[in-house]
Design a protein around this nucleic acid. Sequence first.
DNA 1: AAAATTTAGTTGACAATTCAACCTTTAGCG
DNA 2: CGCTAAAGGTTGAATTGTCAACTAAATTTT
Lengths: 159, 159
Amino acid sequence: MTTHSKKLEKYNPASESFDIKEFPFYWVARVNALYSREMEKTLKPMGMDIARWRVAAILQFNGPSSISELALHAIGKLPTITKIVYRMRDAGLVEVNASESDGRVAIVTLTEEGHKQVDMVLDMTTKKVFSRAFKGFSEPQIKKTNELLKRLFVNLSAD
Amino acid sequence: MTTHSKKLEKYNPASESFDIKEFPFYWVARVNALYSREMEKTLKPMGMDIARWRVAAILQFNGPSSISELALHAIGKLPTITKIVYRMRDAGLVEVNASESDGRVAIVTLTEEGHKQVDMVLDMTTKKVFSRAFKGFSEPQIKKTNELLKRLFVNLSAD
DNA sequence: AAAATTTAGTTGACAATTCAACCTTTAGCG
DNA sequence: CGCTAAAGGTTGAATTGTCAACTAAATTTT
């Protein structure tokens, strides 16, 4: 019993009539790559990269977080985030402390310097990347984009 | 002169009222990561990874391509793609030949074995990942998702 | 409450990616 | 034509990411 109509076949990679240009994940990957590359340009001159940036941004917006939380939101395997965090600590961007309530948990906090860097990046990228990407988008369209992406995310999150 | 309404501020990372959960690129990155992770599960057992998969898929759908074209569509820096391609050649998935018309260009072609692997992956991932991700999506919604992503891509592509 | 399991994080060995520097071949230009 | 620049690709060194194995703290079982 299939819940999909014949028309959906075009979007299905295993179908004969499949067209990669109509496959949303192809575009998700390319948009992500393009956005990352654009960010890189801004980050490089200040000795940052996307990995560090993601962690810093999450810390700025979500406040102090454990390594696991960072792995979840900033996207990455635990060992990867661990190493990024300690590189960032060596660079003076974050502090790492054991949680009071749970001895296993390492809480990462942005330093003053870290906050300054985030503000600087936001300042430089906002006009350069954000407004360019959404040129011609109305508010409902941005909202719609977000909604659809969130739904994809939720669907993929479910085991 | 600004073309954006006050309401758009919420989506703008540099704005005071910015909410990272309403920032589309945050979701683009997370969706991409989740999709990749899901694909990885299928690819790992057959000795593939996402990088190889992207290259193979592009070759399957676009036909023989130069290294630069692969770098563009499969997303990656030139040296990265070069190395992936030669790893794939050593694994018997592709052939590499100099272009007839331009001595600088290396044309990459999927072998029989390569095609077989792509078909196999498509077969295994289609039901597992694609249909799960788009559960509850109507055809117009998938179409809309694609449109919005393409627009973002085009906007970001423009210098 | 002791033993077993799970959760959170770290580390070292290995694999993959990236940056720079380089080599060819092609395209432009006076 | 001959010179210079640009395009396409490759390679080695350095960086970064990943897997597997491990430690320690907390939770669950019994």
